[in-house]
Simulated scan of single mutants.
Amino acid sequence: MAENALYEELMRQLSAVGSVRRELGRIVPAGGSDNSATVLALLGRHGAMRIGRLTELLRVDPSVTSRHVTQLTMLGWVDRNPDPADRRSGVLHLTPEGHARLAELSDRRSWELATRLADWSDEDIRRLTRLLARLRTDFDARQTGQHAFADPTEDAHRPRTPAA
């Protein structure tokens, strides 16, 4: 097991990663917020879902999710339709405008990362991506009791297509 000083340095570096994340979070479509961008990204990645599932993915209180969804619905980026399996529930999905805003957001954040990491090799970026995904997986496993590491760089080469 690593020395305590090694974990302390890891904590400092994770804090610095948090600063990078906050800076990238300032890149949002007009009218949106970092939180709305997160909701767009989750709906873009996972497709249509109930608000309860979105709340689980966000790991926030349902009232917080509801506020984000209300904002995105008012902007016309998300629609909420009745769930055919349970008419009391709604299914959220991105609108065409929501897909456009998500693509804009992704392009702008990718450009920012590419600019800042221009002197990094592709392998260094892949290695960092794998290690961060592994870190997240290990923390998620503690909550869910499951442990299955999936390499996110496998998905990086698949074309992004909007859900119908």
Score class of each variant (00 low, 15 high):
Ala16Ser: 06
Thr137Arg: 01
Gly44Phe: 04
Arg59Phe: 04
Met49Trp: 03
Ser66Thr: 15
Ser106Pro: 00
Gly90Ile: 05
His147Trp: 11
Val60Ala: 14
Trp77Lys: 02
Glu8Asp: 11
Ser36Gln: 14
Thr115Gly: 07
Ser63Cys: 08
Arg26Gly: 11
Leu102Phe: 08
Arg21Pro: 00
Trp111Phe: 08
Ala164Asp: 13
Leu58Gln: 10
Pro84Met: 01
Arg53Glu: 12
Pro162Leu: 03
Ile125Gln: 09
Arg136Thr: 06
Asp86Thr: 12
Ala163Gln: 14
Leu117His: 04
Val69Ser: 01
Gln143Cys: 03
Arg136Ile: 01
Leu14Pro: 01
Ser19His: 05
Ser36Ala: 13
Arg80Ile: 12
His99Pro: 04
Met74Val: 13
Gly90Arg: 04
Leu94Lys: 01
Gly44Met: 07
Arg101Asp: 03
Arg67Gly: 03
Gly31Thr: 11
Asp119Ile: 03
Leu43Gln: 04
Ala150Pro: 00
Ser15Val: 01
Trp111His: 12
Val17Pro: 00
Met11Tyr: 08
Ala118Ser: 13
Gly31Tyr: 13
Glu3Met: 06
Tyr7Val: 04
Leu6Trp: 07
Pro152Ala: 05
Gln13Pro: 00
Trp111Arg: 14
Val78Pro: 00
Asp83Pro: 09
Leu128Pro: 00
Arg160Asp: 14
Thr73Val: 13
His46Thr: 00
Val78Tyr: 02
Pro62Glu: 12
Glu8Ser: 07
Ala100Cys: 06
Ala163Cys: 07
Pro162Thr: 04
Arg158Asp: 13
Leu92Thr: 02
Asp124Tyr: 04
Val64Cys: 10
Arg67Val: 09
Leu57Phe: 08
Thr144Val: 07
Ile125Asn: 03
Arg116Lys: 08
Ser121Ala: 07
Leu131His: 10
Glu104Pro: 01
Asp61Glu: 15
Arg130Leu: 04
Phe139Glu: 13
Pro29Gly: 07
Pro84Phe: 01
Ile51Asn: 08
Thr70Phe: 14
Pro29Asn: 11
Met11Leu: 10
Glu8Cys: 01
Phe139Arg: 14
Arg87Trp: 11
Asn81Asp: 15
His99Met: 06
His157Ile: 10
Ala133Asn: 02
Asp138Pro: 00
Arg160Thr: 13
Arg22Thr: 06
Ala2Glu: 11
Asn4Trp: 05
Leu92Met: 11
Arg22Phe: 00
Val39Cys: 10
Leu40Tyr: 05
Val28Arg: 02
Arg50Thr: 07
Asn81Glu: 15
Asp61Ile: 05
Asp34Thr: 12
Arg134Gln: 05
Asp34Asn: 13
Glu104Thr: 10
Leu105Trp: 01
Asp107Thr: 10
His68Ile: 04
Thr65Asp: 03
Ser19Leu: 03
Thr144Pro: 11
Arg26Leu: 07
Gly98Lys: 02
Gly47Asn: 06
Thr129Pro: 00
Asp61Arg: 15
Thr137Val: 01
Ala114Tyr: 03
Pro162Asp: 08
His147Tyr: 13
Asp83Ala: 09
His46Leu: 02
Gly145Gln: 10
Pro152Asn: 07
Ala37Lys: 00
